[in-house]
Design a binder for these strands. Structure first.
Lengths: 273, 273
DNA sequence: TCAGGAATGCTCGATTCTGCGCGGTTCCGG
DNA sequence: CCGGAACCGCGCAGAATCGAGCATTCCTGA
């Protein structure tokens, strides 16, 4: 099977066939992603999945092991830390057209010179990327990945909350984050959630994250939830706040009409883009 | 030959198709757009896509890398924040080996389970990279770049101070940062400075940064300054604290002996590596 | 019209990545 | 306890990629 070095097998990864990924740099991300999903990976499987020889996979695993990003095991590797829930990881590189549309709509809700807050999440990250096209804004965030992206932009003021970093979501949470937020007044907050439901309100996987997001919402005059269609009607572990605390919901055009109607009936403004 | 001012080659170029080359200003935007779609881009594909040579693409990528808008990788580039250290920075040049030696010496000054603080700076960033080889540590930092690198490490606890981000140095500073630090007790702080002098003490270019670093030092039981040889005897604008507040100075072996002697005479422990 | 600077393409030696084979090590069933 | 099979690390060689220097082309302003 040495001849077939193409990764494109029927039914394998969701490869956008427009641009070929950078071989080595991309493999590292894929390996870590697969690892966070399954908890362990095998050399043979990675070789088949990524279309490179097993020798190369071993070299990759050794490099990642030296960086303490995984732990080498006979025949493959196992995940290093114990904490893994949702591999939010960088797969946001998919920057789907939907999220971008939502982000652009979000931009229209921001007035000149306002103080904007962003929680963690792939959709809010996209909102952050769009914000760089505006000037004179202040951006408050507890998401490290958003902060890192916006730090280089001199045209907006970036305020980062303190706190303990959660490696799964890149969010800064905990009492330190909340006390930072207490000294801040926010005009409009864009909130990413794992679920929004008429009765259960906004929910997310982690209870500490929920508490921090709750404080952020309390400090904001307007609260806009950005969520793709899969989040509507969904309820997960930790409760953030009821929908009555939300000003508006921005979601995709192909969201379930029944769910949209339920939320509207509860008095929430729902906009689909 | 005034009539034939046609400099362009109508079609004799070695180009496969009649693609109009994309000029420089547009290329940057296109590259970043493709990067945001796929998470990574290859030099060869960009060359074909934009109708310019690979050499030009490499020059573009280097420029974008210097602006921190992407990260260069072998064979192409990946979007910022997703690189895993391995592609060694050539930006730091030869100085990196020196910084690495200092960082390794710094590692020996950290006990198991201690709370370590890092201010901003290239040397402290290198210390942060070395810290991942230890487990059970807590790391406090006000440097966004360090936080972003350590956020993916599950083997240590990362605490980020709040504050306003300075785009020049990636540091979080201001009253928010200082109030975050007031709730924290630090075992050992590694401090990067722009100058250290027997009489003027520790100095840095920005006064807000100096104030924040001063608070961080006050909260630390041990204070270790990490600085390359060029910083010794140097005095810049903003004062952080006197040398009496410092536990130890870690610097290069080829530091000016006269400066080292002056600092030692003032009672400071100076170690060269 | 002309000159100079910026941008681009090309060549070349050096570096990095990758696949393959070899010998040693680890795992597993009997 | 033992033998086969799978797995590992290492070194080598070919291929891909890189950075730098130089020639050519394009652009701008005097």
């Amino acid at each position: 099977m040495t001849a077939d070095r193409r990764p494109g097998n029927p039914g394998d990864g969701p490869r956008p066939h427009s641009i070929r990924p950078v071989r080595k740099a991309d493999r590292f991300g894929r390996i870590l992603e697969l690892l966070s999903q399954g908890g362990s990976v095998a050399v043979g499987d990675l070789s088949a999945e990524l279309g490179v020889s097993e020798a190369t996979i071993r070299r990759d695993l050794r490099a990642l092991d030296e960086q303490r990003l995984l732990e080498r095991a006979y025949g493959g590797a196992v995940s290093q830390g114990t904490a893994y829930e949702l591999p939010v990881r960088y797969r946001a590189g998919h920057a789907r057209a939907e999220k971008k549309r939502i982000a652009r709509a979000a931009l229209e809700r921001v007035g000149d010179g306002e103080v904007v807050a962003l929680t963690g999440g792939t959709t809010t990250t996209e909102v952050g990327r769009q914000l760089v096209h505006r000037s004179g804004l202040s951006v408050v965030t507890n998401a490290l990945n958003i902060a890192a992206e916006l730090a280089v932009r001199p045209n907006l003021k970036l305020i980062v909350t303190g706190g303990v970093a959660r490696s799964a979501s890149y969010e800064l949470v905990g009492p330190l984050a909340e006390s930072t937020l207490h000294g801040i007044n926010i005009d409009v907050a864009f909130v990413g959630v794992d679920g929004i439901d008429r009765d259960a309100g906004l929910t997310t996987q982690n209870e500490t994250e929920a508490a921090t997001n709750r404080v952020l919402i309390e400090r904001s005059r307007r609260v806009i939830v950005v969520a793709d269609a899969s989040k509507l009607g969904r309820v997960v572990f930790a409760s953030i706040c009821p929908v009555s605390a939300v000003t508006e919901l921005l979601t995709e055009a192909d969201a379930d009409p029944a769910q949209v109607e339920k939320l509207r009936a509860a008095g929430l403004t729902v906009t689909t883009v």
